[in-house]
Design a protein around this nucleic acid. Structure first.
Lengths: 195, 195
DNA sequence: GTCTATAAAAAGATAGAC
DNA sequence: GTCTATCTTTTTATAGAC
């Protein structure tokens, strides 16, 4: 999958430049110059600009599923709430760390409006979070720490809050996201407990 | 602001083509052809492609503020919850109606990563929704229909849910958004009332 | 695997006539 | 206000040598 070091170098540089300037405003010339190789050398590794964008997309999609952040078996009756909060905070921390991630994902989202091959995967990821949260809440109900009412809607609300926090961070809006997520978990999942 | 009919024609066509193909993939030639005028005629009305994109952005921003959807004076003790739900459903209905809107706004959001003149206005709109919801909840607390605890966080959560619903709709994800918003209002704002 | 040189197409924008 | 014709720049991509 990654035979040469140049190949990896190109992918990393492409990731950064595409995030910074967008797909259209990033030319193959720019990438070649940044990697310090010639344009034909670049085309030796990637048959076209689109192919490079697609490989990059596949690589990114590998690491952003629900199961990359939430491991249901780790959730017990005693740690359920704290674990849900901290795993969510983990996503937030990761988004804050790499701001190129949000930028490039917005590019793929825009591409998705015109090409289903992008939107399909993105929808899969989003749906994965909803069903992931639903499974997690179901598990919480099974071990008796939360109510089992409206599980799907609650899962969708959690997914939407996490998605929006990511979005707001990418805008550069300065909120106390940790506080928001914590309160969201309390409000949506733990409404029967004390405030 | 809109002297000629051709001018409006260009703006409407630009809105549609930019939404469908993106800013970069929509050339001035395409727009001219679609409006059935020549390219120089197009440049007579808009000094550059960027100027056209900017005018379009201003026009859109005029109509998407919090106050376009929520009118606090209309909220009374008896209709508070129902009004909050129905005004939100109104936004959802509007997003569903014009799918070009979400598409073009994503383009502006992508531009905002590289040019503050776009992100600033977008952030203003988002912040406007948060402070708008906060004012609305404060009003609700003043007339005694909801608790006045965590008003800002609740406002941010409502904003995030509405933003995400818009986002999910633009992805083409098929949920019962009306149900989600209704439950969100019940859960976040009305948690002391009966389910 | 990498290079120099170059093709081929398309973009934004303008000159100047009507 | 609108046109035909054209300029200038930049883009993706390739031919062919090393």
């Amino acid at each position: 999958m990654k035979p040469t070091s140049t190949y990896e170098d190109i992918l990393n540089t492409g990731y950064r430049l595409f995030a910074e300037h967008g797909f259209e405003k990033t030319s193959m010339t720019m990438i070649a110059k940044e990697v310090k190789i010639s344009k034909p050398a670049l085309y030796y590794h990637f048959v076209s600009k689109e192919a490079m964008i697609d490989v990059l997309f596949d690589e990114i999609c590998k690491s952003i599923g629900f199961t990359s952040f939430f491991h249901i078996p780790n959730y017990t009756a005693t740690n359920f709430k704290e674990r849900l909060i901290s795993d969510g905070l983990n996503i937030i921390a990761q988004q804050k760390e790499d701001e190129n991630y949000s930028r490039i994902m917005h590019q793929y989202q825009a591409l998705g409006f015109r090409n289903m091959k992008y939107s399909q995967k993105l929808i899969e990821v989003l749906d994965g979070f909803t069903s992931g949260f639903a499974g997690l809440l179901q598990h919480g109900a099974a071990i008796g720490v939360i109510h089992d009412t409206d599980v799907l809607v609650k899962a969708q609300l959690l997914n939407m809050i996490i998605s929006s926090i990511d979005n707001f961070i990418s805008y550069g809006i300065d909120c106390n996201y940790e506080d928001i997520w914590t309160k969201a978990v309390h409000t949506i999942v733990m409404r029967v407990e004390a405030t």
